[in-house]
Amino acid sequence: MSVIRIVVLFGATLTTGLGAGLFYSYACSVMPGLAQADDRSFIEVMQRINVAILNGWFMLSFLGALMLIGIAGVLELKGGNRTALLWIGAAAVFQLAVLVITGVVNVPLNNRLAAAGSPDGIADLAAVRAAFETTWVRWNLVRALTSTAAFACMAWALRLSARTPAAG
């Protein structure tokens, strides 16, 4: 059981870290870079990114992280370190917050941007960009911080759990 518990904890930590890295990358490079682009380029690139990111690899880390955190919590509850379980619980709360923010804020903004159509057919590019950019960037920063907190909690839980012999 100990090996399975550690493998699941490691997988949860890894997928959580991948998500944190993604949101961090957007916060410190992608969005600041796009902020320098003209309205047409900004809209076109964000529309393309929003389509490209919907792939299995992204979904594996994005949805898989919360699933693995949940499994890690169950395994830790059944035979692990109670202190590690608290950190896993905190990670679950942070990771759930990332999913909620994404579903309530970022995805609807992405959908509105897609519904605006091709930049060639948008009459007021500046208005479409303004309705998207500031809010999306602000909430992505919150996702970056929240997912980083989830990753830190999982890393600490992994450390604690790896030092605890399996119950049983």
Rank of each mutant, 00 (worst) to 15 (best):
G33P: 06
T146I: 09
I4W: 05
F151G: 13
W139A: 01
A126G: 06
S41D: 12
S61G: 07
G117F: 07
F23A: 04
P165S: 12
F23C: 01
S2M: 10
G56Y: 03
C153T: 09
A84D: 01
A149W: 07
A162D: 07
M1L: 08
A155H: 09
M31S: 10
I6Q: 12
T146L: 07
A123G: 13
F42E: 00
G121F: 13
R138L: 13
E44D: 15
G73V: 03
A167G: 12
W57C: 07
R163L: 15
P119K: 08
N110Y: 05
M67F: 14
S2H: 13
A162C: 11
G64R: 04
L60N: 04
I69S: 06
V105Q: 11
Q47A: 05
S161R: 00
I53D: 00
G73C: 03
I43Y: 03
P32T: 07
L14H: 02
I49W: 04
A35C: 02
T135W: 00
A149T: 04
T15Q: 07
R82L: 07
W139S: 01
R40L: 06
V105C: 12
I4M: 11
F10Y: 11
A155Y: 10
A149L: 13
I69A: 05
N50I: 02
L9S: 09
A123Q: 15
L54I: 13
R159A: 14
G79A: 08
I101S: 09
L66Y: 07
A72V: 06
S161Q: 09
M1S: 13
L66G: 11
L99F: 12
L96F: 14
V128Q: 08
E76R: 01
Y24P: 00
